[in-house]
Design a protein around this nucleic acid. Structure first.
Length: 805
RNA sequence: GCGGAAGUGCUGGAAUUGGCAGACAGGCAAGACUAAGGAUCUUGUGUCGGAUACGACGUGUGGGUUCAAGUCCCAUCUUCCGCACCA
């Protein structure tokens, strides 16, 4: 009887050995193929690791460990995305410097991650709040600035009344602040913006050549929101003024019965003298402005608006006069802030027309436009549209655009939902924006050799009531000289958003200590692109889009060797509490990984997190399930009591072993960790049935299981195979395809589709011989006797179906 | 409203070039070992009927295609997630 399996005794031991041996430290090695496996670096929050974290980390650790055993030079790094509001808020509340808070949190996180036995190359650890890191974040910002992709703009921003900070559109959820849930209002402020819209097309086109799971591609596309249509000029009656609109349905131009402009549209001010009900419109505009985004969406069903009296427009296709309305369902920020309304073929226009009793003219036949808008573009045929009559929608679109371009009253136009990225935060705990505002020269970039621009020590991290960053109060920091003309100037006091540091971190891992560039060309050429990037669904739109944007920019500057940063992107599902709800402190269903490790061991936690269910789907935690995984590892441990000599696989187990190697190898690649583990459990059960295992069989099992349970497998390996080095140095087992199939198989014999018997046949056995054997079976013979066999279908090695009447 | 994903035993979940539904776990039950077991091992476990043999039914619901459907087609219901007046 051997000693008991005690994770406490062995896990720390192996973690220390790996560290001392620098087992997972890598460098550029042209003689071996590289593999770059990446997980999203965490935000080191005060709560420490959550059982949700180990799911993606373990998955990619398995991939990394397997790849190493397959001979790849594997880069698998980890770091900290440490700027951010929670740390700052904690610092404010507890009067501790965010730097100290971050340091403590990182230490805690790191200890927890080490206890899980991940094969990270810790020598490449990075932290976005290190000045040697954010120096390069600032440097990249300067490159964007120099190319005109960073600009300052006075514009309405989302402002959280509680956090007192400007938010990106993306950080406003249902009209409230994503972090604190407080009301968000619009406020005019001068903001740094990044021109991500310049890359809208490239960001969409690039998706065609990368291997991302489909839903990620779809959400990227939806966010960018590319739409193809036309801009059309409508003339105002008795004026020279042109009112330009954007439409994706220029084919319905004959059906335009009125126009709608956004409440903020400039022609209102321009023609205020002639608008008879100007006061009414101003009142409406003010009412609309007071509505938060939330109210605007809530009230989406009920249309509101005011007719602009005194001016009207002319439909350019038929010269009919049509009224102009103001309504907040038309947004100033999209298209031209004005639309032509075609109530017959647009549901919003239809709702509006019904409410205000405006005419509805059918121009695409196929629906009943008095009852609902007919929007089907696939089946409709144009009518009431002069030269477009009889055409299909697609052809009519082309025809009308050509006509408009010909007459110079319109043109083809592509629009995007994507807006430029609000890059300023009026907060302390972020990267200072390395710009100086000079009264003579305007906004001037710092000299690159003056980077990093360090975050100064301040008395208070609280944002000021004016909404300015706490940095604004540091007069001796703010007051500086212009790098260009040398005269007195002031520093920018806004900082960058948390997205900044994470937009390029995977590049820094490649060469983290480089002081002359964010990474050397040589290292970038060797390691990029990231071969496999796994992360949460919650980051698939923003982080992915932002980092792809920065990367494409760097590529255009010749600074990185590839135009897409990530070759493959996958996503993991959330780990829910035992009650099936999202884990949270307030629900009291949070599971701490430390407790699980203490009670069951890190290998058990790793195994369970992989066995819990389909990797991409969310899964509810179960302590009973954890126990089951521990039991499995115990059974593997105890196999040593059944160990017998022999390097070979025994004939009766050979097929099963080859099948398992194949299944585990493939499943690890396809994120099917749960079935890979199930296959290994099945194999272990076979050894138990045989009540024995040869050394050769055990060695294979230990190597296969090593990526999942690295500590225990190393310990067992050391006990029995120490002469052959460590498990992580072994070669990944190979399988022989020919040996994964049984030479004789059991097939089902059906009569009229119902299984009536099973029969053992040779895989390559002749069909006629199989049939003969089947017919001879007593269970079958009795049933087909006296019946007419209409048909017999034999699927090789699977099934024989006899159709009898 | 639009987009995406998912509905399978008591539970988590397997199985889709259509080919024996329920792998692997958990739970439960019985047995073995034991001073004891909340440890371990063995066996059983979809539902209904039947003592058994066996039979019928069974992958959200209703149709369909097929020798054969969880898988394909049509319709429909439910849940979760994302986006939401983007013209």
């Amino acid at each position: 009887m051997n000693k008991e399996y005690s994770p406490k005794d062995i896990e720390k031991k192996w973690q220390d050995i790996w560290e001392n041996e620098e087992a997972f430290k890598v460098g550029v090695d042209q003689s071996r193929p590289k593999y770059y496996a990446l997980v999203e670096f965490p935000y080191p929050s005060g709560q420490g690791l959550h059982v949700g974290h180990p799911r993606p980390y373990t998955a990619m650790d398995i991939v990394a460990r397997k790849r190493r055993m397959q001979g790849y030079n594997v880069l698998f790094p980890m770091g900290w995305d440490a700027f951010g509001l929670p740390t700052e808020n904690y610092a404010i509340q507890n009067k501790i410097h965010p730097k100290i808070v971050t340091k403590n949190n990182v230490e805690h996180f790191k200890a927890q991650l080490k206890a899980l036995g991940y094969s990270f190359d810790w020598s490449r650890e990075i932290n976005t709040t290190d000045e040697n890191y954010y120096k390069w974040t600032q440097w990249i910002f300067l490159q964007l600035f120099k190319k005109g992709l960073a600009y300052k703009s006075e514009m309405p921003i989302n402002f959280c009344t509680s956090c007192k900070v400007g938010l990106a559109n993306e950080e406003v959820v249902n009209g409230v602040c994503e972090r604190c849930g407080s009301e968000v209002i619009r406020k005019m402020q001068s903001q740094w913006m990044l021109k991500i819209t310049e890359y809208a097309d490239k960001l969409i086109d690039g998706l065609a050549k990368v291997d991302y799971i489909e839903k990620v591609k779809v959400s990227q596309k939806n966010w960018i929101g590319r739409s193809e249509g036309a801009e059309v000029n409508f003339r105002l009656k008795d004026k020279e003024e042109i009112l330009m609109i954007y439409t994706t349905r220029p084919d319905t131009l004959f059906g335009a019965t009125y126009m709608v402009i956004s409440p903020e549209h400039p022609i209102i001010e321009k023609y205020k003298e002639e608008i008879e009900n100007y006061q009414e419109i101003v009142a409406y505009r003010e009412q609309a402005a007071r509505k938060s985004d939330f109210e605007r969406t809530e009230l989406a069903k009920e249309k509101t608006g005011v007719c602009v009296k005194g001016i009207s427009a002319i439909n350019p296709v038929n010269n009919k006069e049509i009224p102009v309305w103001v309504s907040d369902y038309v947004l100033m920020s999209y298209g031209t802030g004005a639309i032509m309304a075609v109530p017959a073929h647009d549901t919003r226009d239809w709702d509006f027309a019904k409410k205000f009793d405006l005419p509805i003219i059918e121009v695409v036949a196929g629906g009943d436009v008095q009852n609902e808008a007919f929007t089907d573009v696939a089946t409709g045929i144009l009518c009431n549209s002069d030269f477009l009559n009889g055409m299909e929608v697609r052809d009519a679109k082309e025809a009308i655009i050509n006509w408009l371009e010909d007459k110079k009253i319109g043109h083809r136009k592509v629009n995007f939902k994507l807006r430029d990225w609000v890059f300023s935060r009026q907060r302390y705990w972020g990267e200072p924006i390395p710009i100086v505002k000079c009264p003579c020269c305007g906004y001037v970039a710092l000299n690159e050799e003056d980077l990093p621009l360090r975050l100064p020590e301040v008395e208070s991290y609280m944002p000021t009531d004016t909404g300015e960053s706490p940095l604004a109060a540091m007069r001796d920091w703010v007051e500086t000289t212009c790098p260009k003309c040398g005269k007195k100037a002031e520093r920018e006091t806004d900082t960058m958003p948390q997205w900044a540091g994470s937009s390029w971190y995977f590049l820094r891992y490649i060469d983290p200590d480089n002081t002359s560039a964010f990474a050397s060309k040589e290292a970038l050429e060797y390691w990029m692109p990231v071969d496999w990037y796994n992360g949460g669904m919650e980051h698939t739109t923003l982080h992915l889009l932002y980092s792809r944007f920065w990367h494409k920019f760097l590529y255009d500057q010749g600074l990185v060797p590839c135009d897409e940063p990530y070759k493959k992107r996958t996503s993991h599902g959330m780990i829910l509490g035992e009650n099936g709800e999202k884990m949270s402190k307030s629900r009291g269903n949070v599971v701490n990984p430390d407790d699980v490790i203490n009670e069951f061991g890190a290998d058990t936690l790793r195994t369970y997190e992989m066995f819990i269910g389909a990797f991409e789907l969310s899964a509810a935690w179960s302590m009973e399930g954890v126990k089951g995984c521990r039991r499995f590892l115990d059974r593997v441990w105890k196999l040593q009591d059944m160990l017998i000599d022999g390097e070979e696989y025994r004939p009766q187990l050979e097929t099963k072993i080859h099948q398992t190697i194949k299944k585990v190898s493939n499943d690890f690649e396809n994120l099917k960790f749960n079935t890979a583990i199930a296959a290994m459990m099945g194999l272990v059960n076979e050894f138990y049935k045989a009540n024995s295992i040869t050394k050769g069989e055990y060695a294979t099992l230990l190597v296969l299981l090593n990526p999942v349970a690295p500590h225990m497998t190393e310990e067992l390996w050391e006990m029995y195979f120490a002469g052959a080095g460590k498990v992580y140095q072994q070669k990944w087992p190979e399988y022989d395809e020919a040996k994964t199939v049984e030479s004789t198989v059991e097939i089902a014999v059906q009569i009229n589709g119902k299984v009536k018997a099973t029969i053992s046949v040779g895989l390559e056995e002749e069909e006629s011989s199989v049939k003969q054997k089947a017919h001879a079976l007593p269970a079958i013979a009795g049933l087909i006797e006296g019946k007419n066999i209409v048909k017999e279908i034999y699927v090789k090695g699977r099934i024989l179906n006899i159709v009898a009447k």
